[in-house]
Amino acid sequence: MKRVVGILAVFLLLSYLSHGYQFYGYPYIQKIKNFTLINQDGKEVSFSDFRGKYLLVFFGYTFCPDVCPTSMLRIKETLDYLGSYKKYVHVLFISVDPERDTPELLKRFISFYDPSGKYITGLTGKPEEIKKVAKMFKAYYEKVPIKDNPEVGYLVDHTAFIYLIDKKGILRIIFRPANDDPKRIAQDIIQVIKIFGVE
């Protein structure tokens, strides 16, 4: 009951602050604790390094055949719809397959969706670190072996939500895979930026 009231409060607060704007994604409030992982250049980066930016966070892996390429394309299209707001937004692609996703692989993967190299950061790290981060986002993933195929070895089943985090590191909106219209995701992002402002 407490939880329901909490969720209702989140809805009412956001809707009040946005003058009745109907959010496409699922409004949420959760402070994300700091974490440190390895970026596509092999350097340690912390979540707090991105303070001041609005973040889109996605958990995936570079071997992913269907779901991640779809989501990454939608994210790319979303960035394009942001127009002048694009500069306030950054994307974190966090690998749920850290054993195979080296920084080099991540770099080539993200540059496919962001040739400028400015808007997307790929993150990998020790499996136990990734596990902790995923848990905080309530993201779930699990290796699924493929029979008779040593080349591919395994796939990873995983949740495919896109999380919108505000400039102070607070999770504000969750987009489910069914909510993948880039235009409407961009509208939500702009709305959230308007509410919480820019630095």
Binding site: T62, F63, C64, P65, P69, R108, F109, F112, E151, V152
Partner: peptide, 12 residues
Amino acid sequence: VRAVPPTAKNTA
């Protein structure tokens, strides 16, 4: 066929 990054081993 879906275009994927050059490093990708899988597509659809």
